[in-house]
Design a protein around this nucleic acid. Structure first.
Lengths: 144, 144
DNA sequence: CAAAGCTCGTTACAAGTGAAACCAATGCTG
DNA sequence: CAGCATTGGTTTCACTTGTAACGAGCTTTG
């Protein structure tokens, strides 16, 4: 068994490396963790979201959301107000600063992603998208 | 920009979920971290490896290798002897216990991977492999 | 062959993480 | 509507992680 050619390993490695290229932009350059980036991404385009919506749309659990959102609040990128409907809940929204940061960073992240994807042939890129979508469906099926 | 349909996010998510399925086997069931599992995987089939070889073949840095290999040693799964040629270096090898554990766990991990991959159509699976190989090549090119 | 510089593995420190406990708010039940 | 269970978010604890510093061993240079 050659680790280097073992498919699950190849998949993990390629995905990690690709993700790393993007972290270099929003992480190294702007000091955002992946969780923070994902939340900011969602909040930048929504008026406001509940933590429940955030959890559903990011696969982050409540602890991760609590921590990441707190850090974003400390950086003045989002607000997290207590819901008046149900005072256990929080309602998250992006600040002007957060909007501005997102508008600055996202194009760079997207460009970085495209730099990598542009290296693939049209055919390979299509295969990648098809394969990943199929894999996403396969792992989403709630069976072991 | 819908996060859920943004390709880099889809890729990261699918890869994470797939990897998670495997961690459930060697991690939850046998208490190995991903780093530990990767080292064990390499050492189980090699007679012995230097840390330099381990680093090259796993993309782990020296700190990660030092820590993961120490844990494996504590569990009596590998040995790490100081090289007599160069006393700064270590030479790693798998113990009998480590071999036995690997022989027990690997088939289960592989089976789990195949459970997921078997859900894909023949065509989707071929596309996935082709796409991932192409992506791996693209991210390996040392250009930003 | 001594001195300076490099390499390797480990460790110290601060920050981050997962799991469980915790607290306040809400919902449910009689 | 009192009492109990549940829910949502935070916090605590122990552990892991990244970065930089460290010390021991090799190598290079004069």
């Amino acid at each position: 068994m050659q680790l280097e050619t073992y498919f699950p390993y190849r998949l993990a490695l390629a995905a990690e490396a690709f993700s790393q290229k993007l972290v270099e932009v929003y992480g190294r350059k702007y000091g955002l963790s992946r969780e923070e980036w994902r939340l900011l991404l969602l909040l930048a385009e929504a008026q406001q979201l509940s933590s429940h919506e955030l959890a559903q749309r990011t696969t982050l659990d409540k602890v991760q959301i609590s921590r990441a959102s707190k850090r974003l609040e400390d950086k003045n990128l989002i607000t997290r107000e207590i819901s008046q409907v149900d005072k256990r809940l929080r309602v998250y929204a992006c600040t002007q600063t957060g909007q501005a940061l997102f508008a600055e960073v996202f194009p760079q992240v997207d460009a970085q992603a495209n730099v990598v994807l542009a290296k693939l042939s049209e055919e390979d890129r299509a295969a990648l998208v098809q394969g990943i979508e199929a894999l996403a469906r396969a792992v989403a099926n709630n069976q072991s």
